[in-house]
Amino acid sequence: MTEISYLWPLGGGLLIGTSAGLYLLLNGRVAGISGLAAAAAGLSNEGSSRLGLGFLAGIIAGAWLAAAVVRRPEIVVTASPALLVAGGLLVGYGTRLGSGCTSGHGVCGLARLSPRSLAATAIFMTVAAATVFVMRHLLGMQP
Rank of each mutant, 00 (worst) to 15 (best):
A40G: 00
G54Q: 01
L90N: 03
A40Y: 03
G58L: 02
G28T: 05
T121M: 08
Y6A: 13
L138K: 11
R96N: 14
I123R: 06
A120L: 06
Y93N: 00
L43H: 08
I123F: 12
L24M: 09
N27C: 10
P81F: 05
F124T: 09
I123L: 12
L56P: 01
S80M: 04
S48C: 11
A57H: 02
T78I: 11
V127E: 03
L110A: 04
G32W: 01
L89C: 08
L26N: 09
L84R: 07
G104D: 01
A129C: 08
V132H: 10
Y93F: 15
L90C: 15
E74S: 13
L10Q: 06
G94C: 01
T121I: 05
L65N: 02
Y6K: 14
S80V: 03
I16D: 02
H137F: 13
G21I: 01
L118Y: 10
G100Q: 07
G54F: 01
A66G: 12
T78H: 15
G11R: 07
I75A: 14
R136Y: 04
G17M: 10
A40W: 01
R29I: 03
S34C: 06
G94W: 00
G32D: 07
V30R: 13
L26V: 13
L138F: 12
T131Y: 09
R29G: 02
G92V: 05
L110T: 00
L90W: 02
A40R: 07
G12K: 03
T126W: 03
L43G: 02
V132N: 04
R71V: 14
H105K: 07
G21A: 11
A67W: 13
R72D: 10
N45Q: 14
S103T: 14
A111T: 09
V134D: 05
L110N: 05
Y23V: 06
V70P: 02
L89N: 01
